[in-house]
Amino acid sequence: MASQPTPQEAAEALRNIDQRAEQARGSLRNAPRWLDWLAGAVIFLYCTSIDFFPGSAVWRSWIFAALAVGYAIALRTRRGSALLGQSARIHRQAVSPRFVLIARLTLAAVVAASVVAVALLGSAHTSMYVPYLSTILGAVLATALIGFGTRLRAGLATLAGSGHRMGGLPDGRS
């Protein structure tokens, strides 16, 4: 390439920039499988302990919160990420603002739905009692995480970059 690129070379360079950003986001897919198994086991044990150790609510919540916070902090550091099998941390500029909005709305909807569900189940506890409900829920969540963890991450990586181009060629053509 000469010092002043031709229009074709410039368009190719812009496409290259978008492809590399996509490649970086794709590194999210590379989390090791053992992490899915570990997360599944933690969630299953947490849910199971609700049924089998009902008096342990306080320390159970503290342990779960500590694990969640520890995981989040580890992902923000180079060494922690490396230990968890992540070789890069995605920059916020590479994430589509639409994805951030959808993620926040989904989180808010999940929290709201949980509050409503707890209120409804609390008021109708005697008539809607299901034995070992937490254990069943834990088993379903753990199986989903272990079975679909890779696909879930791939989907999130695709969504994170959808419609977002760092190079900025809107149609990918020159």
Binding site: I17, R25, R89
Partner: peptide, 10 residues
């Protein structure tokens, strides 16, 4: 470009 999409990369 690859590094621009990351905060760091190995």
């Amino acid at each position: 470009s690859l590094l621009a999409a990351t905060e760091w990369a190995e």
